[in-house]
Design a protein around this nucleic acid. Structure first.
Length: 313
DNA sequence: AGCATTTGACCTCC
DNA sequence: GGAGGTCAAATGCT
């Protein structure tokens, strides 16, 4: 609550009151989660005819579970250290504004009793504080189920920004949201060059409080027009055997380099290495895992690196 | 019919 | 006043 809020850019807008700032660690863990989900998008379709697909799925889920738990612990630390953020919402709530359905307010007597009267409309603006940004070619395959609630053209941006909230927002009061926007760097935007996928910037706001967790049923993963365009541009003659709703199908990776520093994670990844070469229907040429096993003293010390310039076909 | 997405309007913040 | 985030009616899809 101390007002040490010197002017900061949104990217590093962390309260100085937090003596031990875990947010960079949170960012890294979130990035690791994203990378594992991308890996899952590559691996599971390749193994779908293999009986070890379930095993691979379980191990990948285990990896994600590790990082989720680490994230939860850090979130607890953060929330206890920053009372300003422990509001139920991560946005300002200075005013509640009643939506004016008509230009006059003369029908106040009606609105007073009518249960159909428009509720107080909370219109809030989010803060940048606890956001996590991820660059990914598969923005929708992050293990959670999202519902799109808006899309905006952003100033000086070529592509619109899509707004998603957790599917279980109402039933489980889950306040997690995310925005997805296609990157427009020339390096990535040249979708005609099949060496690189279309990349998206995904920004996550808030933590999932729903107990659904990552979607066990991947068919529920949301795919919007952006991914479909991406899919079309990258695999114009893609096999119709693949389930089109799976975001992982939209990008086939020929080479992935993953570096992690968690003993649990490394163990699971090594099991995966035993499985993958046996898969017959691998659509990828090579799946290369560069697992550098730095055994960390804490599970929290998960440090992932992915070769973002891996070859994509 | 029910659910998800689209899209213009509305709202807040800078 | 502009930009960005959200709402909610309209529309589309299954």
């Amino acid at each position: 609550m101390n007002n040490c809020s010197s002017k900061r850019s949104p990217a590093d807008e962390y309260p100085s009151s937090v003596c031990c700032d875990h947010r960079p660690a949170l960012r890294e863990i979130a990035r690791g989660q994203s990378l594992v989900t991308q890996l899952r998008a590559v691996v599971l379709p390749a193994l779908q005819a293999d009986e070890r697909c379930d095993l691979a799925a379980q191990m990948l889920e285990g990896i994600l579970d590790c990082s989720r738990k680490a994230m939860s612990e850090l979130q607890l630390l953060l929330s206890s250290n920053s009372p300003a953020d422990d509001d139920d919402d991560h946005v300002d709530d200075k005013r509640r504004v009643r939506k004016i359905s008509d230009d006059d307010d003369g029908c106040s007597s009606k609105a007073a009793e009518d249960q159909n009267a428009k509720p107080l409309r909370q219109h809030k603006r989010r803060r940048f504080g606890d956001s996590v940004s991820v660059e990914t070619p598969v923005p929708h395959y992050d293990g959670h189920q999202w519902r799109k609630y808006g899309q905006k053209h952003i100033n000086n941006a070529k592509h619109p920004r899509s707004y998603y909230r957790c599917t279980y927002r109402q039933e489980e009061k889950c306040k997690a949201t995310k925005t997805v926007q296609q990157r427009e760097d020339l390096h990535y935007a040249n979708s005609n060059n099949c060496d690189h996928p279309v990349m998206y910037t995904v920004v996550y706001y808030g933590q999932h409080t729903c107990c659904k967790g990552p979607a066990a049923d991947d068919d529920h993963v949301v795919v919007d027009e952006a991914s479909q365009i991406s899919s079309q541009s990258q695999s114009q003659s893609s096999s119709s055997n693949l389930q089109p709703a799976r975001a992982g199908d939209s990008n086939q990776c020929s080479s992935i380099s993953v570096t992690c520093s968690s003993s649990t994670v490394v163990e699971d990844c090594n099991k995966l290495l035993d499985i993958l070469p046996a898969a017959d229907d691998l659509t990828t040429d090579v799946l290369l895992f560069d697992l550098t096993a730095y055994y960390a003293p804490l599970d929290l010390d998960i440090n992932w690196e992915m070769d973002a310039d891996a070859l994509w076909v």
